[in-house]
Design a protein around this nucleic acid. Structure first.
Lengths: 344, 344
DNA sequence: TTGTAGGCGTTATCAC
DNA sequence: GTGATAACGCCTACAA
């Protein structure tokens, strides 16, 4: 069963190839009403579907958008265990589809894989989630396509960025704890890297402490991977060795889940003995028991925004150059059941 | 900055275009060692990256694999909130990448979108997750590319299928409850559709009941969407109106989470008052508190298997036609803390 | 308004 | 061994 091409519809409609191409591309003013009708009919008859590959070759576009995702180090699997990413991708796919694009999902290995996929697939644009090496950013520039970075603080005007005010988020979380009467507040977090979201949250944590006249104690920060197990380890460590800590700010919900587990395993209660606040508000946060108090970032909105920004850039290719702005999605703490008000 | 092509490489190396193409495609026996070396050097020099689009046009392949995902009805968002899918996609992406393919992620709207994407993008193959209408399957056949269905029981030898023995899973879950002394066992589940996974699990539930000489009571099955909220509603309903029910089989972990929440909200305990067993063993199952007893399907393995099967089919295009086999991933119940042994 | 023809980057067939 | 050159399916001047 041969694939049917523009030629077939041309023949079937008794017109030229060019005519078909015209109506396919909306240049209908170049074609008579009669021809248009005949062509449309043929298209329907033959069930013709344009070949994007061929089109892409000549128009030098692909209607394809790359979504690049962090790689877990060990597994060479996408970091999908964290539902955070799935929610965002889902959102991205939604808007992108509305505009007629499709998504290519790809992890990036070591080496220059990114540039590879970008140019070999002729991507129209890309969304990059999470933080990467400088090298990746350099590659991206070479690729020379619109790119929007999610959650990156890289100082570079070549990329549009969407994210949140992580410093504020850290501040909000910590302040919420302070407002509830807590004074010795632990921080359980992933690696604090320069210009990473985690660092900002950490900074917010310190600011809230300082503003409240509280002493920042570096013994109270438990820094490791942003993972459930790290949370769990830290939780039990805190519960057993740091009885003075009455509240914990975990810089990701997944970590918070671990913290709570660890605490409970050490025979203490949340929020009875120690309060916990998370970060992200992934959908599990409200499903977990007890429901997690956390600072909510609107994950879907973030994805949508990134997608829209990207498409805008793609469409305005010739237009104004992107300014490197960072558009920020609002934040709010949502109170559920893991933070207790300290009376006394 | 013009994109550099095979032509540039040829010129730079002082050889013909054909020669370059040869070494690019491993037909090195047709080219002298010297030429090969010069070409490789030029490639590196110029940082040449082949254009898959052009290649695809002539070879009529794309090295692209479609991953089609169910659509939630309301939101037009991928059904990604269920981490189940993310885990699988992650697995798929991993193996597919190893073989040099990329993944196009797409939800399918109403209408014939699937065929569209498949032929317009010239997909080399596709993986379809979940259950769809007959119409979709018909479309797929028209597309005429290798397709593997995940979790489908469609009677059709044109597709390879990978899944699990859902009937057995349902049986195992229910039997586990029975073995722990429970006699009045509720079933909380998504819609029971003919040939759907849920129906099979339902059948397994009934078989276990029957085998144990237990009465099947249709009042005890709570059928609605496979969602957290449905679980929650059913949980509280059961806890308040069906005190005789001491155990519940929820046909998905997400539902089980809801059930547990509902039960607790009605002032009862899990597993103290009522036991709950889930299905899937998504990663949250072990993170949830209490850790969920559930029947584990190896989600990643399922994705990997599907991907490998598909690639095999793609590679053997000329070879044996797929037999429509359904390869099944083993199942096991993993005991955690939501099922209590009834002594009485 | 319509059709012809060149070209997008590659591959592959044939001569040389 | 090597190199023209005709496809692949489509778009778009340009000419008719």
């Amino acid at each position: 069963m041969r694939k049917i091409t523009i030629k077939d519809v041309a023949r079937n409609a008794g017109v030229s190839i060019a005519a078909v191409s015209y109506v396919l591309n909306g240049k209908e003013n170049k074609v008579s009403q009669d021809t248009i009708a005949r062509i449309h009919e043929s298209i329907k008859d033959l069930n013709y579907i344009p070949n994007m590959t061929a089109r892409g070759l000549v128009k030098n576009t692909s209607e394809l958008i790359g979504v690049i995702i962090p790689q877990t180090e060990d597994h060479k699997q996408l970091v999908f265990e964290n539902p955070f990413y799935s929610e965002m991708i889902s959102a991205i796919e939604g808007v992108v589809r509305d505009y007629g694009y499709h998504i290519i999902l790809a992890g990036v290995d070591k080496g220059k894989t990114y540039l590879d996929i970008s140019t070999s697939r002729n991507l129209d644009g890309a969304i990059i989630m999470g933080i990467y090496s400088e090298q990746l950013y350099e590659e991206c520039k070479l690729a020379n396509i619109p790119i929007v970075l999610i959650d990156s603080y890289v100082h570079d005007n070549d990329f549009a960025k969407v994210g949140i005010d992580d410093e504020l988020g850290g501040y909000l979380a910590t302040k919420h704890l302070i407002d509830n009467g807590h004074r010795n507040i632990g921080l359980v977090t992933g690696m604090i890297r320069k210009d990473g979201v985690v660092e900002k949250r950490f900074l917010g944590y310190k600011r809230a402490l300082q503003e409240a006249g509280l002493f920042y104690n570096s013994d109270y920060v438990f820094e490791n991977s942003v993972s459930y197990v790290h949370g769990r380890n830290s939780g039990s460590l805190i519960a057993s060795k740091f009885p003075e800590i009455t509240a914990i700010f975990a810089t990701a919900d997944m970590v918070a889940f671990g913290v709570i587990r660890g605490i409970k395993e050490s025979g203490k209660e949340v929020p009875g003995d120690v309060s916990v606040i998370g970060f992200d508000d992934i959908s599990m946060a409200n499903i977990f028991l007890p429901p997690l108090t956390t600072v909510k970032q609107q994950i879907s909105l973030k994805g949508e925004t990134a997608a829209k920004l990207l498409i805008e850039q793609i469409r305005n290719k010739r237009g104004v150059k992107n300014q490197g702005d960072r558009t920020e999605i609002p934040l709010e703490v949502v109170e559920r059941e893991t933070v207790r008000k300290l009376t006394k």
